[in-house]
Design a protein around this nucleic acid. Structure first.
Ligand code: MN
Ligand code: MN
Ligand code: ZN
Ligand code: ZN
Lengths: 142, 142
DNA sequence: ACCAATATCAAGAACTATTCTAAATTGGTT
DNA sequence: AACCAATTTAGAATAGTTCTTGATATTGGT
């Protein structure tokens, strides 16, 4: 039950090149980790996980790989307040719901066909190119 | 032409105490600066501006004051990506539109009567307590 | 296969925003 | 005035991230 078709499943082979970015061993492994558990890990989380496959990788390389993946539109960087950045392989437009009681971060999508100006008072003539939405709360009552 | 009634105008006297926070000289001046130009300044911006009235104030104090104001719900801290935090005296629920061509940050409000679940696919049973919305783009065509 | 050019990686230093620490100052209260 | 708690100050410390530099790896042309 995959909820988003724009994310490759973790089993599919990651090709030699993705969106114009050559997939080195390190980049491939970093990307694979992101596809494996879609829990929005931090750079350090990724570092710890990727060490299983590449024990000699450095944190700097993880940062480099993540930056390359983000700049080629393969991965999204997600910031919550001033916490460490988190990374998400879902590059479709989506927001995040942060469950305060469990700490789990859920992807949330816009209902099809909705328009920003349907629910927001936008400045006249505003052309929106990028949306960032974060919700916080709980799943179910306490 | 004030666009939001939950923000005191810059002329009104700031009382001895606001929302349970004693207004010291430094806190009052920091708050006054935020009310004066609602341009979402950074802590350092506030520091530079507040020096006119209090030349011996320290950056640490500006951070202390901003933290106190935020924790008492008098001021909102706003984060864009990994940039320095910005501060906003509008504590009503609102999002932000960041005009990429001018750098100006506009407050945006939700249209009255709209419900989150009207336009978002939320996880079942999600109770939302906090919304953070940032839009980026341009005012008018290039 | 060899070589040179280019890209990537690794390690640690550097950087920036923010928080912490500890000493001085302030302001209100007995 | 002496006291006490809160606040302010200056500078050190911290955390996340980026930068620098030299080592490795990969590519494409011969
Ligand atoms: Mn984590
Ligand atoms: Mn600024
Ligand atoms: Zn996500
Ligand atoms: Zn605002």
């Amino acid at each position: 039950m995959v909820d988003n078709l724009t994310v490759p499943s973790p089993e599919t082979e990651i090709p030699e090149e993705v969106s114009g970015l050559r997939m080195t061993r390190q980049r491939r492994e970093v990307y694979r980790i992101l596809l494996q558990d879609r829990d929005h890990p931090t750079a350090n989380d990724v570092f710890l996980r990727v060490k299983d496959a590449l024990p000699s990788i450095s944190l700097a390389t993880v940062y480099n790989c993540l930056e390359a993946l983000v700049q080629h539109g393969i991965v999204r960087q997600v910031n919550f307040e001033r916490e460490s950045s988190r990374f998400c392989p879902n590059v479709a437009e989506h927001g995040h719901f942060h469950d305060r009681s469990t700490g789990v971060i859920h992807d949330i999508t816009f209902k099809p066909g909705v328009n920003l100006s349907d629910f927001l008072d936008l400045p006249a003539g505003a052309v929106i190119t990028d949306i960032e939405l974060t919700l916080r709360g709980q799943l179910g009552s306490i």
